[in-house]
Computed example of a mutant assay.
Amino acid sequence: MRCNRRALLYAGFFYAPLASADWQLNLIEGATEISRSVYSLHMVIFYICVAIAVVVFGVMFWSIFWHRKSRGAKAAHFHESTWIEILWTIIPVAILVSMAVPASTTLIQMYDKNNAELDIQITGYQWKWRYQYLDQDIDFFSNLTTPADQISNEAIKGDNYLLEVDRPMVIPAGKKVRFLITSNDVIHSWWVPALAVKKDAVPGFINEAWTLVDQPGIYRGQCAELCGKDHGFMPIVVEVKSAEDYQLWLQQQGALKLAQQQSAERDWSVEELMSRGEEVYKQSCLACHQAEGQGIPNVFPALAGSPLMNETVDEHIDVVLNGRSGTAMQAFAEQLSASDLAAVITYERGAWGNQGGAVSVQQIKEMLKE
């Protein structure tokens, strides 16, 4: 038994460094001038704290060892000392000033949002992000795309587990970008460590932040505020492109918007609506209503067998478009296109044994006009 314990102990010492090799215990330097300034400030404050700890604990341990009672030491008796009072006032003030100067410089840089070349409004939803490019007529939602079988531990987790999205935020390299951050429902927090940006998204308020990334690359982050059941499934991906690639991306977004408009004009078969609706459901509805439409008892209602799915089509459409006050049901009128709305409603009314019938894109467009 003692030998087994000793073997386990040796194994622990041998494998611990390997297991901890990928641990990130310190801040990262990041990809922007501000992030590097924050890192430098952090290290300056850290070393000041280390120096203070070494001096204080060194004096304390030296005093305990050399002036212990067993060596015959006797405590000095004095009531006050002007010099000591001056020293313990001047030294802390000098330390605080040495910390305040670089901290203030970095904070002034972080809050200087002037002369931005691009404005993006970021809105937090449960549980996704919406990006609106205010001067370029671009508006889209960014959703988690990590496969469900990885989340349920039925498949090997990928390199970017829970940090993958269908549509990343795209910004140009070398240009100052201002973020206007808010929320549609509860408090979220938009956090990308490599950009040194972390701002709360608060309903009814707009917080500002900015970044300027020198080199193209992909930078990942997460919601950093506990915002509900799927808080851990709300990733952020920022893709920085060169000026030429960014212009190409803008053209692609224009073509994508035109394709969405055209899809709302054509006639969709029931089979096409069901197929597309299943994809939209997995993306936007599955987290609450579950894969088989069974919902979560006492939290999210079941869709399978629901009278809403089988009878009152107008009420069903209204709930999906406008949400339901006092519940967690969101309004999807702005989140999904007319064709996607028709597809997901058709899917909900035809899946899991429901017999509610299909909904046309034209019905959705008429309801959106009201």
Rank of each mutant, 00 (worst) to 15 (best):
L256M: 05
L256G: 01
L256Y: 08
K257W: 00
K257N: 05
K257Y: 00
K257A: 11
L258T: 09
L258Q: 14
A259F: 03
A259R: 10
Q260L: 07
Q260D: 10
Q260H: 06
Q260G: 00
Q260A: 07
Q261N: 09
Q262F: 01
Q262W: 03
Q262T: 03
Q262D: 12
S263G: 01
A264T: 02
A264E: 13
E265G: 01
E265C: 00
R266V: 15
R266E: 13
R266A: 05
D267E: 15
D267V: 13
D267A: 12
D267K: 07
S269N: 06
S269L: 05
V270E: 15
E271F: 01
E271D: 15
E271C: 01
E271H: 06
E272G: 11
E272V: 06
E272P: 04
E272W: 07
E272Q: 15
L273R: 06
L273I: 07
M274S: 03
M274A: 04
M274Y: 07
S275W: 04
S275Y: 09
S275P: 00
R276F: 05
R276V: 05
R276I: 02
G277R: 06
G277M: 09
G277H: 09
G277P: 09
G277C: 12
E278T: 03
E278M: 10
E278A: 11
E278R: 11
E278C: 03
E278V: 02
E278D: 10
E279Q: 15
E279N: 10
E279R: 11
E279M: 14
E279D: 15
E279F: 10
V280P: 06
V280K: 04
V280E: 08
Y281F: 15
K282T: 04
K282Q: 15
Q283M: 12
Q283R: 15
S284T: 11
S284I: 00
S284A: 13
S284P: 00
S284M: 05
C285H: 03
C285W: 03
L286Q: 14
A287D: 13
C288Y: 03
C288V: 09
C288H: 07
C288K: 04
H289N: 11
H289P: 10
H289D: 13
H289S: 11
Q290V: 08
Q290G: 00
E292H: 13
E292Y: 10
E292N: 15
E292C: 03
E292W: 05
E292V: 02
Q294T: 13
Q294H: 08
G295T: 05
G295Q: 06
G295N: 08
G295Y: 03
I296Q: 13
I296H: 08
I296C: 05
P297A: 14
V299E: 14
V299Y: 07
F300K: 01
F300E: 02
P301H: 02
A302V: 02
A302N: 02
L303S: 02
A304I: 05
A304V: 11
G305R: 09
G305M: 06
G305W: 05
S306D: 14
S306I: 04
S306M: 06
P307Q: 09
P307V: 06
P307W: 07
P307N: 09
L308T: 08
L308Q: 09
L308K: 03
M309R: 08
M309Q: 11
